[in-house]
Design a protein around this nucleic acid. Structure first.
Ligand SMILES: [Mn+2]
Ligand SMILES: [Mn+2]
Ligand SMILES: [Mn+2]
Ligand SMILES: [Mn+2]
Lengths: 248, 248
DNA sequence: AAGTATTTTTAGACATGACTAACAAATCGG
DNA sequence: CCGATTTGTTAGTCATGTCTAAAAATACTT
């Protein structure tokens, strides 16, 4: 017997989103129509029709021209899989990383399609840990507190703890990138900047754990030439001062 | 003056990957050729040429037929931005969630294109917390330990802690889904299953924090009908027994 | 320098996934 | 029941992003 269906193993993100949308519509309104799908996905109805044909040929939906659309057993399985990934990612972004709900959803809905089985598994373990383990709950609280305070003063509980600790253990002390000697390397611990300056530095690749080497500092102290991941880069004095690192 | 360039604000994932590849090639081999780009991205050389034309029209690379390819200032900025996201995501998946390096890279390289500024910011804060805060370091250790042990016996430090705790505080005790009374609801804490059975349940939407209601249990105890997020679902007895939840 | 090998481009094809405009069918209100 | 409105489909267009096959340009070898 010839297999007329197209393999749905390599389904596209777009089609997965259609499946997810149909899944939610059926759940909330009992039935999925072209119009509602178009509205939910923010596309024109004339884009939905060919997508439905493709899904139908893959055996993922039951679709007859001008009739209500339903998921097949196979389609529902796939829709649930995507939806499940969406859920855990959205919760991760919202409850763990602290994004607002619309941005959490935006990130989740983009990533749900590519998350591997094993990555999914690890997100689940993270939540099992956070929910089941007293230490996990505490971790989340501490992190959320630090994370929130950061936007404001950047002086939070763990900063103070670090300072106190550094008085005892000298080798663990942090130093600003600007104070690092030329030729020496450091590992970034914290980027003590705000707003667009912070974002610019992150986009340049100045991240926690990054190894940075001072190349040279202009006589006036500005700019500061650094080496980072095989490339040279120049920073303003203010920017260099805001990077806290440990020497390595 | 007419602007001949195309806006690169809405650049595609594919073109971002080309930029990132060029960035890495220039870093590692001083120069980027069509052949190397094709090899690195696992596409045919004849797919690279039109991509280079598009990037060139957007003003992101310097490209003349049959010559070496370079990033413009604008292109390098964008490439670094993507690369920076790739780095932090890869580290997150590898060092925090514990994926092996190739799977960490796979997930990171898919997600780097859609990560919003604010989501990026939160990943950075997470690492600042983990690296800078003694509590962060300690708790990461605890999580990694629990996470690893899980695959094997599912009886790790935090399980034991929970059990001891539950003797004192009765309301916090966990119960298996199978032991929940019909009509009652519970919040999932842990899915105590392994391998494909576990994956199947995750794909069905049985995740930590999910609210599940028992609909009814067949007289023989199998299957168990449950309600989850507005849908009915049936589980095998073994599956229901493996779900640990708190009553709500 | 000629011949060979490698690299790059072109030409042509195809699937996806969106759009607009026009048409067709179904539904609703009176 | 009929005209108006809503809903859905078709036709035609376009950009993206891949491919194969063939041609053209460049580089290497003897
Ligand atoms: Mn999506
Ligand atoms: Mn989604
Ligand atoms: Mn990528
Ligand atoms: Mn990447």
């Amino acid at each position: 017997m010839v297999k007329a269906q197209i393999d749905h193993k390599d389904i596209t993100s777009s089609l997965e989103d259609y499946l997810e949308t149909i899944f939610e519509l059926v759940r909330d309104r009992k039935v999925a129509r072209v119009r509602d799908i178009a509205e939910a996905r923010q596309v024109k109805a004339s884009s939905v029709t060919p997508a439905m044909r493709r899904l139908s040929r893959m055996g993922l939906i039951k679709y007859e021209r001008r009739e209500f659309i339903e998921l097949t057993a196979e389609g529902e399985k796939l829709a649930r899989r995507v939806y499940s990934r969406h859920q855990i990612l959205e919760r991760f972004f919202q409850n763990f990383l602290g994004l607002n709900s619309s941005e959490a959803r935006e990130n989740a809905c983009a990533m749900e399609h590519s998350l591997t089985n094993e990555a999914m598994e690890r997100f689940v373990r993270l939540f099992e840990f956070l929910r089941g383990c007293p230490a996990g709950k505490e971790l989340l609280q501490t992190f959320l507190h630090c994370s929130e305070v950061q936007g404001a003063t950047r002086e939070c509980a763990f900063d103070r703890a670090l300072k106190q600790q550094s008085k005892r253990k000298r080798e663990h002390s942090t130093i600003s990138l600007f104070d690092l000697k030329p030729g020496k390397k450091g590992r970034v611990i914290q980027i003590n900047a705000k707003g667009s300056m912070r974002r610019r530095m992150l986009d340049l690749g100045i991240l926690p754990d990054t190894i940075i080497e001072i190349e040279r500092i202009a006589p006036s102290g500005d700019p500061v030439w650094i080496k980072l991941g095989g490339f040279q880069l120049s920073l303003r004095k203010r920017e260099a001062e805001s990077v806290l690192l440990t020497t390595v």
